[in-house]
Design a protein around this nucleic acid. Sequence first.
DNA 1: AAAAATGTTGCACGCGCGTGCAAACGATGT
DNA 2: ACATCGTTTGCACGCGCGTGCAACATTTTT
Lengths: 337, 337
Amino acid sequence: MPKAESLPNITADDVAAQAGVSRWTVNRAFKKDASISPKTREKVMTAAQSLGYVPDLSAAALASTRSNLVALLIDDFANPHKLVMLEKLTRALRSRGWDTLLVNTLDSDDAAPALLNASQRRVDATILIGIQFDDEVLNAAHDARRFKKLIIFARTSENPNTISIAVDDEAATREIAQYVIRKGYQRPLYMAGPRTVSAHLLRKETFAREWKDRFDREPECIAADRYDPDLAASIAHDALKDRTAAELPDIIVCENDALALGVIDTIRHRLGLRVPQDIAVLGFDDVPQAAGHNYRLTTYRQPLTEMSNYLVDVLESQDDTVHDRKFLGRLVPRDSA
Amino acid sequence: MPKAESLPNITADDVAAQAGVSRWTVNRAFKKDASISPKTREKVMTAAQSLGYVPDLSAAALASTRSNLVALLIDDFANPHKLVMLEKLTRALRSRGWDTLLVNTLDSDDAAPALLNASQRRVDATILIGIQFDDEVLNAAHDARRFKKLIIFARTSENPNTISIAVDDEAATREIAQYVIRKGYQRPLYMAGPRTVSAHLLRKETFAREWKDRFDREPECIAADRYDPDLAASIAHDALKDRTAAELPDIIVCENDALALGVIDTIRHRLGLRVPQDIAVLGFDDVPQAAGHNYRLTTYRQPLTEMSNYLVDVLESQDDTVHDRKFLGRLVPRDSA
DNA sequence: AAAAATGTTGCACGCGCGTGCAAACGATGT
DNA sequence: ACATCGTTTGCACGCGCGTGCAACATTTTT
């Protein structure tokens, strides 16, 4: 039976009275690099402890220009990789003193309202890890000036108003293409994801270019407009069900693991074929299931921990230099290709 | 190149000046059931729009006793069901005007600090969807009085200081047990999850009781201390690898899908057996992958949308009556059992 | 021992909005 | 036209803490 009774909050004033110092000294005691003598700090901390006082970050945010709060906007919950990203991001953020406001972008028209919603809480930065943020929305957000930093995480963006922290898609895809070529695959099928953000065709285009450079022909391509295993399964099925063995690809290169997992399921359970003997599959992200005994998916691992830590570095930096950065991951060969 | 320049914020005062009314009228215009005439409201809204004004929720939280913010504490990111829960919860919350502070409980000792962290943002409620919250932590949090409402979501809790919104574990497990019995399985193996919270042995105990009532013997049990498919896979493998066919269970009933998926992988790929012909598997939660062609997992679906909406009802209710509520889900029979 | 340098503490003001009440307004009835 | 009632608007005060500077205490230097 939780009570809603509003007993008076304990404020810094209460602690100040008990410790025999001024309120400002109390707040100093809680500030990392404040100028305060060790003994008064300890005196204050003891008093605070006995009263159960903790600084009110909400009031702190109002009084200063910093809130130590970031908004995290996300929309595609079907992609299991998102859970990993949420874990890595919130871990890096919280362990360095940042709180996270999670905003679910409810549908395709909700991007702008979601962005606005975040701004109403005085966030210091807005992190986008969804797919529905196009240039129009981004620019509008930037023009409104309500956003100190707009960070696109794990996705390349060429929008000059944003900071993009992602793997180097070109380098990664080149590595993947080289791997496919080296392993002697002849008839690749590339499965792309949603193309909401222009720059995200990068992977598909890079793969196509590499392939063409080598064999002087375009690889076949199909696309799913969501990173959803079930959707990928259906699309792959539609594309392949009526083909003869000779018409089938020998490898399906997927823009990410969410697609690859669905594709593997379709190959095995709807087409009745084997992976990788009949059709090999290659992914991107290295989701937890990729390593499991069922999929053993060959994929490309992003350095998410490193990327998350860099993101916090960006948050804590003051200067206005562009903070875009591309990371290198690594190909993880398993059994699927 | 996002600028950090702090141009003056647009406040209600600015809008008031432009609309020719007082600041208070401006804020009234943005409040749902405020006493304000339609025409002044429109006048204010027009002015607000032209200036790009939106109320500052951070200041509103400070001034009033409500923040329209809830903290969501989570720790077990290995369980894919958590992503579904995050989606349903944030959707219900945001579509009804609530913001979500996502707090990653970093490790087992971090539960109390995480709770404290949330309280510093003046949240109106704290929702627990992790596993590391034992009675000690819960009671300490409640005693500190910093939490208006402590809600345990999708997990039964008998702690009187919390509000538990969950499926009726007993009814659900009874239904599962009856299904297993009806289908003629003889040698079930029950795989339990972590037992951090006392009440969560409910499923295992209920299953054991039902089985004993029918056959007068205890079913065999094993346990994983995290809801992690990989861990479940290892534990199942260790438990079964040296058995003869006659010693193997004919069905493995798992406390949830996270375990069930790992168990299926082990049965197929490490033991070389078939599901369900050699060993059947039953889960709980109905994660997205359970429906896919690979697993076709028979499982029990929780009414998460309904539960999420009820949670918001609880947030919006004023009275102090206990709001615990148990929901009924339904068994979804597929091919795995 | 005095002066200068350094370290430490106190304070006025404001961040943007909510609360509760009082004043002003408009409509209704006699 | 006047009193009455309900509706709409305005306002003083406070929520808890940061900022920047001034005052004070302590240490170091000469």
